[in-house]
Amino acid sequence: MAYINVEDLVLDFSKYDDDGKPMEPNRALDGVSFSVEKGSFVAVVGMNGSGKSTLAKCLNGLLLPTSGSVEINGMKTSDESHIWDIRSNIGMVFQNPDNQLVSSIVEDDVAFGPENLGVDPEEIRKRVDEALKRVDMYDCKDKAAHMLSGGQKQRIAIAGAVAMRPSCIVFDEPTAMLDPAGRAKVMGIIKDLNKEGITVVLITHFMEEAMEADRIIVMQNGRIIGDRTPAELFADTEFVHEAGLELPTVIELRDMLGMDKKIMSVEELAENI
């Protein structure tokens, strides 16, 4: 069975009028079904407001389904007895690095997760050191977190997730607020984590990042309107534009030059000139 199983997921946000009377709820997710195999790398793309972030929050039970189900490794998020198991299995990294650091010192921040899992102190020390080395931030372990750059803070947030030893990490636009150097570094870490066996769900607006995934899920108005490999998706220019997305630059160039649709990288493109 797949590691993540989402079936006919509907999520409503309640709305109230000025007098506090319930109004027609806002349907953020409207019948979403998909599954993710262990160890795979899935990107989720779509316009703002298409339901991507809501979906992310459903995967570790931060939001619970209005109807339908989300199952992680056979455990339903709606089953309260499993919720902590699920949260220790699914790490989350959000967009704004400033909103997810909880301690003033880097290593304390990374230790926060395992501490809450009740891991014993020696083991915590080990995990924190490993996680910091993993994101290339070990040298900053006793620095003040607020003095770091955005990209460094984001790496600390990833270390915090890694220290929980999750089998899957959900990244919600982790590079949106970073400069190009920070983005490249964070993307490199995400790819490496995936190679080491961690299942990755990456929500992003950058098509270049989505291209790195095994599979791209396209969302619009709370529904999945496409679930394809990068090669399939970016061969379908019309669909890409309908979904409010854009083509990665290499693909756009390939098409402007009328080259073979199989070409997916600069290297391949250069070879075919």
Binding site: M47, N48, Q95, A176, H205, G244, E246
Partner: peptide, 10 residues
């Protein structure tokens, strides 16, 4: 342009 989706970016 930071943080906008592709359409909003354009």
């Amino acid at each position: 342009m930071a943080g906008l989706d592709p359409q909003a970016h354009r």
